[in-house]
Design a protein around this nucleic acid. Structure first.
Length: 461
RNA sequence: GGUCGGGUGGCCGAGAGGCGAGGCAAGGGACUGCAAAUCCCUCUACACGGGUUCAAAUCCCGUCCCGACCUCCA
């Protein structure tokens, strides 16, 4: 099976064909850096990172753009509130986002453009749109796109323009039609602004992405992604601007669903958002990634602490098998993929089905450990590690290996082995009170002892 | 009002006409001095009412419920 992906525009899963052979260009709408990320933000990051890794594994070269929206109303609002320059607010949260992405082993984008770094491209795009007659500048410094003049509009969300509720904005008086949207917003006193032929102002949200996608990927590119809530208006307006400028734009649209709580979308404004930093106090980044990436990208993921904990436990079982297999085989598993896993991933990134194949590998692998069948241990360990690698959850990945400081593991191993030798001799003379005291003592220190056919092993909880 | 998703076992979560995904929890068993880990077995569900079909969780019609978007959103 070749790679098939869903397309929001057609609402169908279809075979993926890149514009250029073995090259894929992807633009994903990144964060507006007006606060720290919640787990919904990074779910989007994980979902598109899995897509990217799968494309790379499938032999494609991938150019991956994820922008940073570093100027918007909320950033300006925060800046006033915190008495900081707007750019300092944006940079502060951009760094928090970057750190969160790194904790979850989300690959850095090929290019990560900031909106404010691309004003020139935005002005060029507006000029083009005004020359085309698609956009107009009413004279107050705003620039609007005239949606009624478009050949098509709202094709992604399949809405009728007359059914849209008009925006409640107070300063709509300069629009020819209430549904026209701002490409550029005139400067308000005290706000940052950039000079344009139509007056000083700042970019509208939609214009940024069209201009940056064009700057880095050209007139046509393969995949445009983002959260489901961006379909309208953001992506509709990106399409409108780009098509009005004569660009082919995105060939396929992918949207990830939300993380919900009590059935409701997680969002800062609803006050039910869970910050990544908070969650990472209870689970490791690799475990949070396993949890967020485990649901299908188009399905809502209902968050609960119990579900997260369950998922983390499940991951630790897999990880424990891989470590065990490494000890028994004498080398790290290689990266192999089972047919089941490949087929699942090719079917619109069916991660839950792919996970079922990992569970099967795990069961067979553990059985092989019991039977001491090294060939079967290796096969299953290799296929599990290969799958985890695609999912960005390879425990051997350097991204997850603690860096800095000296590694105390060999020293600790020696000390624990001394204790285990004592325990073994106690067990030999059937002094179970003594042997259990050693095991309990180690358990109190967070060290778990398992008696295996190959002798005792220890691990830190 | 318009446009979209969704309702699956105790819980989470796939599937989208026919071989009962998978995980977690629970119960039983094997192994163990006892545990832990692991393996085996059990528990077998698709909101409701009609319809189509040899066959429906899946398609159609209707109903109920939940959620999202309608110019701030991942």
């Amino acid at each position: 099976m070749t790679l098939h992906l869903y397309d929001t525009a057609s609402r169908e899963v279809s075979e993926f064909k890149s514009l250029k052979p073995l090259q894929v260009s992807i633009y994903v709408c990144g964060a507006t850096v007006q606060g720290p990320p919640h787990i919904g933000h990074v779910r989007s990051g994980v979902n598109f990172d899995i897509l990217r890794r799968w494309l790379i594994k499938s032999g494609y070269g991938v150019t991956f753009i994820r922008n940073v929206t570093d100027i918007d109303d909320k950033i300006l609002h925060s800046a006033k509130h915190d008495e900081m320059p707007w750019w300092a607010v944006a940079m502060k949260y951009e760094r928090v986002f970057t750190a969160a992405y790194a904790e979850l082993n989300i690959l850095p984008p090929t290019y990560e453009p900031r909106a404010t770094g691309h004003i020139t491209q935005m002005i060029e795009l507006m000029k083009k749109l005004i020359d085309n007659g698609a956009a107009y500048a009413p004279g107050n410094g705003d620039v609007y796109l005239e949606v009624r003049k478009l050949k098509s509009y709202l094709t992604l969300s399949r809405q009728n323009i007359d059914d849209l509720q008009a925006s409640a904005d107070a300063d709509e008086t300069n629009k020819k039609d209430v549904r026209d949207f701002a490409l550029w917003k005139a400067a308000k006193p005290g706000d940052p602004s950039w000079p344009t032929p139509w007056g000083p102002g700042r970019p509208g949200w939609h214009l940024e992405c069209s201009a940056m996608a064009h700057a880095y990927l050209g007139e046509k590119f393969d995949i445009h992604g983002g959260g489901l809530d961006l379909v309208f208006p953001h992506h509709e307006n990106e399409i409108a601007q780009s098509e009005a400028a004569g660009y082919g734009f995105a060939q396929r649209w992918l949207h990830n669903a939300w993380v919900t709580q009590s059935g409701e979308k997680m969002s800062k404004s609803l006050g039910n958002s869970l910050q990544v930093n908070e969650i990472l106090k209870s689970v490791r980044g690799i475990e949070l990634r396993w949890y967020l990436g485990g649901a299908h990208y188009r399905s809502m993921l209902e968050y609960s602490p119990a579900a997260l904990e369950e998922s983390a436990t499940n991951f630790r079982r897999i990880e424990s098998f891989l470590k065990r297999a490494t000890e028994l085989i004498g080398e790290k598993p290689s990266l192999q993929l089972s047919e089941e896993f490949k087929n699942a991933m090719n079917d619109d990134l069916a991660v839950p089905t792919a996970l079922a194949s990992i569970s099967e590998n795990l069961r067979l692998g553990n059985q092989a450990v019991t039977d001491n069948d090294k060939k079967a241990i290796a096969k299953n360990a290799n296929e599990i590690r290969g799958a985890l690698d695609v999912l960005g959850c390879d425990p051997f990945d350097l991204a997850f290996v603690q860096s800095g400081g000296s590694d105390l593991t060999p020293a600790l191993d020696g000390v624990i082995k001394l204790a285990l030798t004592e325990r073994a001799s106690a067990r030999e003379r059937k002094d179970f009170a003594a042997s259990d005291a050693i095991r309990d003592g180690l358990a109190d220190l967070g060290i778990t002892i398992e008696d295996t056919a190959q002798g005792p092993r220890w691990s830190i909880n």
